[in-house]
Design a protein around this nucleic acid. Structure first.
Lengths: 231, 231
DNA sequence: CAGTGGTCTAGACCACCAG
DNA sequence: TGGTGGTCTAGACCACTGA
């Protein structure tokens, strides 16, 4: 049999039949076996094609119950959170950063909770400004669990930004992320060259690696920043 | 051969070896064939396991060049943009909405460009307030391409919100999404019960289906709203 | 040009669960 | 309990691309 059907082309074909309304939302589609026969391909191939659609949230698959078109599709967006330096350099600008503050201090309760530290444990507190062509780009307020990453105490953070240093030293960590809008505080406003109260796009992350909580960070971008994606 | 190794378990095993530092960032990993032999599984199984890791951005695979651990992992977050009513009801609150404005008007240039309409073409302009337990939750400013969705002209949008009506009538559309922060205008501030200039989390979308542009919408959430995810 | 990943196939067994 | 999706296997061929 000629492999004229790739799982990609099958995926696309099925997707089109769904968007064309052939199987309305909530209805059950033909089984893998039937579809494979219709397209004259192996069931494994059709299986893979359907898995792609299931991953993208278009259909739902259950054993015995069959394949069902999702009744009310909620949009799934895949967002890539770039390393700031890459983001700036991609736009052809020069990247720079400056450490505005670096101290070891007892973690405030909120931070201690996020990093699973006992209240009052000392942690590294960093405030950093990221610049694009000398212009302020983003303001970062970060706490690092020294017990998990002792090496950061002696890291040359003036040369390698905290962001990148952590990515290099503790890659592949897991984390929580939240996106929100916040009003600029006086410090952020001064650093970003805007007025206090300005609307800033804010990304907060807490990351860990194998049960060791590494860092919690709040990143505020300069006014006008947008995070874009396709769905 | 006993299928003691599922592609999931293999995926996890390989991921752990990577995070443990066995193959540092940027280095080349053993080939599919070798890994399959090491784990005593079929190459197809190992292939699928590695594809999972490649999809999540942990490794990069190229023919002939082999499988390489990504040098500087940029975080990939999968975000689900929920239907507003579901989001509110999930929190146990009562959903409500009111149409603040509904008119047919020539599309402003910016809107016309996004919807690929000729300048001045008339389109449906809607402003809607979404409520959670009577409290304002989000403010929506939407333009709909009447040519693409003529039925919306007569839709009972007081009963079914524009958001949901479009999801039902034009499901499975594609789109661009962007996240940002914006200062509340006087209208939004009044609707959301906050002061003008307040920092609002804003989601803008433009969606289409098979070359027909459907709608462009800007959704501003009440102050304090967060969009969360795990990575 | 040789080695790598990408994919298809045919067959098999299993896990789940609605009827 | 039978039909459905989930998965593994062994083998094969192809596409790409670096040495």
């Amino acid at each position: 049999m000629n492999p004229h059907h790739t799982h990609q082309s099958l995926s696309l074909a099925i997707r089109n039949r769904i968007t064309a309304g052939e199987w309305p939302p909530g209805t059950v589609m033909p089984s893998e076996t039937d579809l494979a026969q219709e397209y004259q391909c192996a069931r494994a191939t059709m299986n893979r094609a359907l898995q792609v659609l299931a991953d993208s949230g278009l259909i739902e698959r259950k054993r015995r119950a069959g394949t069902r078109v999702m009744p009310l599709p909620s949009s799934l967006a895949k967002i890539e959170i770039p390393i700031i330096r890459h983001e700036i350099e991609k736009r052809g600008a020069a990247f720079g950063h400056s450490i505005l503050m670096r101290e070891t201090a007892p973690a405030p309760e909120k931070v201690a909770r996020q990093l699973h530290l006992r209240k009052g444990t000392r942690a590294l507190h960093l405030k950093t400004l990221y610049q694009s062509d000398q212009e302020p780009f983003a303001y970062e307020d970060r706490w690092v669990n020294i017990q998990a990453v002792p090496a950061i105490s002696t890291a040359p953070l003036d040369e390698v930004s905290p962001n990148e240093w952590l990515v290099r030293d503790v890659p592949y960590s897991s984390g929580y992320v939240s996106f929100s809008a916040s009003a600029a505080g006086s410090e952020e406003a001064a650093a970003l060259g805007t007025r206090p109260g300005a609307a800033l796009f804010t990304v907060s992350r807490t990351t860990w690696l194998a049960n060791r909580f590494i860092t919690t960070v709040t990143l505020s971008y300069r006014p006008g920043y947008q995070l874009q994606t396709k769905l």
